[in-house]
Structures are given as C-alpha cells and as structure tokens.
Design a binder for these strands. Structure first.
Lengths: 120, 120, 120, 120
DNA sequence: GTGGTCTAGACCACT
DNA sequence: GTGGTCTAGACCACC
C-alpha cells in the first residue's frame, strides 16, 4: 500500500474547485460578472497564468463564459449549474464514503450520525 | 475569506491519522505488534523522529503502547478502540457536512445520495 | 534489587516538572505570558527542541497554551490549575511515603516530625 | 534562580545513602557482616575505590566498623542505629517539606493527605 | 536491534 | 521575532 502525502493536486485544480463551489453556492450569481483574471490572481496570490488555467477549466465545464473583451460571466443556464452542483455533490459523497469504508463504517451508521448532527 | 493552499496539516499529524485509521479498521489488530519506528519511517519516507512524533500522538490517545524495548503494540482495550472509532467517525461526518453546507446541499439530499451510492 | 545511578528522568521531564511547580506556586501567574522557547532554552542551557518538548507536556496538561505566534500563556482556568496542584501534591506525598516505608518509618512518626518541623 | 539538573551528588554519596537505608531498615541486621568491598563494587558496577569511599562514610557515622582483616560489620550499638534512623528521617521530612513549600502546600494539608493515603 | 532522548541547524507561517 | 515542524545524526538503556 502506497503512502504519499498528496497535495499532489496542482494549484490550478484547487483554485478551480474553490471557484466552482462559489458558483454553485451562489457566491457568484448566474449571469454575474466575475472579477478580472489579474485581480483574482492577486487575491489568490498566484501567477495570473495559473488563474487563467483555472478559469479555462470552468469554461470547459460551461460554468462561465468569456464575452469577448468584456470580462467573464457566470452562465445563466440553470441546467448547467444544477448539473455541476450534482456532479460536485456526487464526488463529495463518493469521497466521503470511501473514507468511511476505510474505517469500516456502514452507510446506516453514517446516515444515523448525519441525522443526529443535523439537529445541532 | 482567506485563500490558502493548505497542506496545513503537519506530516506527523497525517501519519498519525493514517495509522489511526489502520488501527481502527483492523489493519493492525488489537494486541498486535506494529513495525519498529525506523522501519515505519523508511516506509513513509520520513525521518525517524517524525515517525516517533506521530506514534507518540497515538500513544497519548491510548491506541498503542510501547513495551519497553520490545516494540510497540496496539492496545487490547476494545473500549479505547471503539471510542477512537467513534471520535474519528464523528469528525469525518462533521467535516463532510461542513463541505456540503458550503455547497448548499441539504442533509436530506445527502442521505438520499448516500443510499443510492450504497447500492453500487 | 537493581542498583542504578538514575538521572533516569529525561531532561525534558525535569524541565516540565520545574515549570509545573512554578506555575502551581504562582511564579508564573494565571494568564501571564511565559518567556519564548528560545529564551527559556538558553536559560536552561538546553536545545530549543528539548524545551519545546517540555512545554508541549504542559500544554497537553492544559497548564499553558500557545496563542498562535503571540507567545505562550499560562491558563486562566483556575480549575485546571488547582487540579494540577492536587495531582502534584498527591504524587509528592506518595513518593515521600514510599521512601519513608523503605526506612520503616510509621505514618504517625512522620506526622509528628512534620508538626515539629513546622514550628521552626 | 539557578537551574541545574542536579545529580550533582557524587556517586559515593548515593551509594552511602542506599547502604544507610538498608542498614536502617534491617536489610543488614545489627552485628551482621557485610559483603567485601570488591563484591559490593561489582554489584554496584562502580570502581572499588568509590565503594570504599562510600563505606568509609558509614564508618565515620559509626554505622559500620572494620574488624581488622575480618571484614566489615554493622554496628551492634542500637543507639547509633536509631540515631542514624532519626537523622535520615529528619532529612527526608525536611526535603519533603521544602518541596511542598515550593508548591505552596500547607503542613495541615500534607498531614491530611498522609492520613488519607495511609488508609490505602 | 529497539525505543527513547538530545543536539544542531534549517525552514515555514504569521504579524 | 515567535511558535511549530522537519531532518540528520548521535548516544544511551535494555535484552
């Protein structure tokens, strides 16, 4: 069994994930313009190229689109947004179940714990 | 809100977490001897001191104990083990819910997804 | 029975004991900031790592806590302090009685001697 | 305030203390012959000179006496023995009180703790 | 060989 | 500058 202290994930992937979450949860609303690359890059303290790379990921996924020289906008296509949301959720759940399984925790147990925690 | 490309977790914490999981899921059975520090260190590609630090974490948790110069053993106290399992599970669920909330996913939705996934 | 010229106690344990006493008796008051690791290390003529090790002992006992990069502070929780005091006292008395027993001195005798000495 | 990780005490003092205790508590009975220097030295893993030094301490105190070439014997003088016992006890109590004082523990408290412990 | 301790020196994050 | 972590290399006690 391999060790590996990950954080293998490239920075642009991590940035894309974060922005994706912010689009999904509405921090950036549908149709809203997002800040220019340079500004985002400064905020995240990364190279503009890296930020560009991250944004192009989201573009491929259809979450954002560049309107010529006018800046980038979050898509207004609700179907795309909800699909992205579903995919992200699926991946989160999947990862969660994988870790739970590594600790030999049954799904029933998990559900019970989630319900209990949700009452907090 | 701060950005941050974490890897905030120190190596010894990550090692401890991994070993904890392996003890919880029975990779290292109760009462079983675990490999010597130096060997674990080589396997994990870290300095023996770092591995020692990680192991001492598990020792204060009561999961393992050093028997003089005879090597380290997983505790035989099942109560301690199950308590550790419960704590770890709780933390996993809590972290999971935190992330889900950041994506505005309801608990009902999560439970439904878990049940569906569990049929895979 | 084994002989032994001890100095069995590791240095970091001895340091911890000393600092614990100083916290208990108020040399370091509750809520007070304690000197930085490096300075304490110099004063005690040990390696900073060793001092760090000693301090982390007191930290797990809850007697001190590190406030980020702002230095370490003695806890303000009086309950913790008095509990530590009680534990330390118990251990002192226990060790004392053990030695007294090895010299076949009865508890009555000890108490008498303590009372007499206290009038000095 | 000085640090110092004691064990400043010379080895021969430590040996003398141990032997003194063993004479006081009757491990070596009054009038009994004690093992030859060389044997004691081997047992204690010290240089015979060191052991000699220790024994001469006890000789000065009158606890043991050398009978020419016939070996050393514990004194039969009960007065000397009980005096030594008293001195040792006094020193033990004194040291105990010193430590207790450094933790700000009152004599009344100590006595109460001793009485409680004695019921164990 | 094994656990444990200690030193020396370095780097990082935070502020 | 402060706490924290990590590495490298050494020594000791025990069996």
């Amino acid at each position: 069994m391999a060790w590996s202290f990950n954080q293998h994930a490239p920075v642009y992937i991590q940035i894309a994930k974060r922005l994706r979450t912010e689009i999904i949860n509405g921090t950036y609303a549908p149709g809203e313009q997002i800040p220019p690359v340079r500004q985002l890059a400064i905020t995240a303290a990364v190279n503009p190229n890296t930020m560009q790379h991250a944004l192009s990921e989201l573009e491929v996924e259809g979450l954002i689109c560049a309107k010529g020289t006018q800046g980038r906008y979050v898509t207004e296509d609700v179907a795309v947004l909800s699909a992205a949301r579903r995919t992200a959720a699926k991946q989160l759940v999947s990862e969660f179940l994988k870790q739970a399984e590594s600790m030999s925790i049954s799904k029933a147990e998990l559900i019970k714990m989630i319900e209990e925690e949700s009452q907090v």
